[in-house]
């Protein structure tokens, strides 16, 4: 327990200390690398601005993730019972995954305008394929004998989905959620910067970069980092509560 608490703090403190001394010793240009102490001080001074910006970014990422997850569950439930559609969907989803989202973001911004719409749209689309793959894999992972047991009492398709397939998919979905969290933050940050709005950490970062304002830029970087770490902690907590049965199974098999 103490190791699990102390070790990560030790790692972080070491990184920040090395970073701080590196910047001071070698007198790095501010824009390239800012001393953490300076960035944190700036962040603290303008905390209310950063806080409201962070709230916007959190909403973009979280709502986008939830939308992607819901759509993935819907599409996944259809694909899992239809091999033809699954095979048809494969190339489309792979295409979404391999085409860099930064490439078509300008078109989306022109289409959806500035503000929340393009951010939510981008986060949802970019996170969707991994969620769908995870949903289908997870729902397929059910033992045939379990399905047979359900059939023996004439379970309906929706009962099988709700009682067996969805819970079976939960562990894979959580793993994907953790991976998609970073992606969602990146997409939200970038879209906020690219969509001419002045809301969100991404918007602050973009303007700071354009103005060559190192303190503001690095404070934005710290802000998004804090949001990311907080999100991961929240996910870990959720996973421990909702999937305790799975965690226990895992540790036993190791």
């Amino acid at each position: 327990m103490s190791r699990r608490l102390v070790a990560p703090i030790f790692g972080m403190v070491t990184l920040l200390a090395l970073w701080e001394s590196f910047v001071r010793l070698f007198d790095v240009r501010r824009f390239i690398l800012l001393a953490p102490s300076t960035a944190v001080r700036y962040l603290w001074r303008f905390r209310s601005d950063y806080l409201s910006a962070a709230w916007v970014t959190v909403q973009h990422a979280a709502i986008g993730l939830l939308l992607a997850l819901s759509v993935a569950l819907l599409i996944g439930s259809v694909l899992v019972s239809n091999r033809f559609l699954e095979t048809a969907a494969q190339p489309v989803l792979t295409l979404i995954q391999v085409v860099p989202w930064v490439a078509y973001i300008s078109s989306v911004v022109v289409w959806l305008g500035s503000g929340t719409a393009p951010a939510l749209f981008m986060v949802t689309v970019v996170c969707l394929p991994a969620f769908i793959f995870a949903a289908v894999d997870g729902m397929r992972s059910v033992e045939p004998s379990t399905l047979e047991l359900m059939a023996s009492v004439n379970a309906s398709r929706s009962e099988v989905l709700r009682r067996v397939r969805l819970p079976s998919a939960a562990p894979t979905l959580f793993t994907t959620l953790r991976f998609n969290l970073g992606l969602a933050l990146a997409v939200a940050y970038y879209t906020e910067g690219a969509n001419f709005s002045n809301k969100g950490i991404g918007a602050i970062g973009r303007r700071a970069a354009a103005d060559n304002h190192a303190d503001r830029l690095w404070a934005a970087i710290f802000a998004i980092a804090i949001v990311g770490v907080g999100g991961l902690q929240l996910l870990a907590l959720l996973e421990r509560t909702l999937l305790h049965w799975h965690a226990a199974q895992r540790t036993e098999s190791v």
Partner: peptide
């Protein structure tokens, strides 16, 4: 049915697993 593998659902307690077939249909 009593299948060869018990196939209990890992997220259900023993009590809930015992109820499974009653919970369906």
């Amino acid at each position: 049915m009593v299948p060869q593998q018990p196939g209990l659902l890992p997220w259900r307690t023993v009590r809930a697993n015992a109820r499974l077939l009653l919970d369906i249909n």
